[in-house]
């Protein structure tokens, strides 16, 4: 029997998201993955930035940190390095992660710090009511793209991979079992993991672009994707314009906080019998 609700602060529900929003589906997928892995609630810390996605953490019954716009990964880096034994998860959105937080994202990936990052990509700034983001497809409408978005968008998974993330996957709020599987794998990877979850924003992206409501948007998202394994067997013209979903990259490598712990052991061994350093000031401060 599923115990999913016990991972929520039920007194904080209902959530603030619009009817039809996909963020709740992704939050549910995270909780289900945590439940499957049997992780200790007291050793999980979930960090977010600003935006619709980032409100997820307030509903979760862990140590949770709702930070400043774009900075979730930097706060999370401090937590993970300070206490490597904690399972640190970042919940972020396309604007939070790839625009204002883009630099922290590539550097967290470069370090391969043990943080699982779940990017709820609805291709729009929802909280501020529909401006285009770095993930909005070219040509689509937003309140700041009234004539169609003139900019190109990121491939976030390629960015994560090339920056050094050791696990990368993509799913959608339509492909929920896949999403749960990927989050489970991401949480199991000892390193920087990224799961991009395409989600529907019927209120802004859907309405502005006349895609329809939540159901039509899920259909629209589904039709953009193709499973990575299946795609490998297809000719290029059949893959044209499709987003790959599934496990896209899995290349374990030493995790940063653990490596730093090793460095400390080595330094402490070398300095065990030495005198006269500034560090002696710290001898009564533990």
């Amino acid at each position: 029997m599923s115990n999913t609700l016990s991972y929520f602060r039920q007194e904080r529900l209902p959530h603030i998201w619009c009817p039809g929003c996909g963020h709740g589906t992704v939050t549910g997928a995270l909780v289900r993955a945590i439940e499957r892995l049997g992780l200790d609630k007291n050793k999980i810390c979930v960090v977010s930035g600003i935006g619709c996605s980032s409100r997820a953490v307030g509903y979760l019954d862990f140590d949770t940190l709702h930070t400043a716009h774009g900075r979730a990964l930097a706060f999370a880096t401090g937590i993970k390095l300070a206490r490597p034994e904690l399972k640190v998860i970042v919940m972020t959105g396309d604007g939070d992660c790839t625009a204002i937080g883009g630099n922290h994202f590539i550097h967290a990936a470069r370090r391969n710090i043990g943080i699982t990052t779940i990017v709820m990509n609805n291709e729009i700034y929802g909280m501020t009511s529909g401006q285009y983001s770095p993930m909005t497809p070219k040509g689509m409408l937003g309140t700041t793209a009234p004539y169609g978005n003139a900019e190109r968008s990121f491939d976030l998974c390629e960015l994560a991979k090339s920056s050094g993330a050791t696990f990368v996957g993509r799913a959608t709020s339509y492909h929920v079992p896949l999403l749960i599987d990927l989050i489970e794998k991401a949480l199991s990877n000892n390193g920087f993991s990224v799961v991009e979850a395409l989600t529907q924003c019927p209120t802004y992206l859907g309405r502005k672009n006349k895609i329809g409501g939540a159901v039509e948007m899920l259909e629209w998202i589904k039709n953009q994707t193709i499973n990575a394994k299946a795609a490998a067997a297809l000719p290029p013209e059949k893959r044209e314009g499709k987003l790959l979903i599934g496990e896209l990259h899995n290349a374990p490598a030493p995790e940063f906080a653990g490596e730093y712990g090793e460095l400390i052991h080595t330094v402490q061994r070398n300095f065990a019998n030495m005198k006269g350093g500034l560090w002696e000031c710290a001898s009564n401060s533990d």
Partner: peptide, 24 residues
Amino acid sequence: VGGKFIQMEDEIGSVAAIIGASLA
């Protein structure tokens, strides 16, 4: 002394990281 040092990607990240560490 068993402490941690990290050179962050900018000063915004630096202050964010120390807030995270303090919370920890």
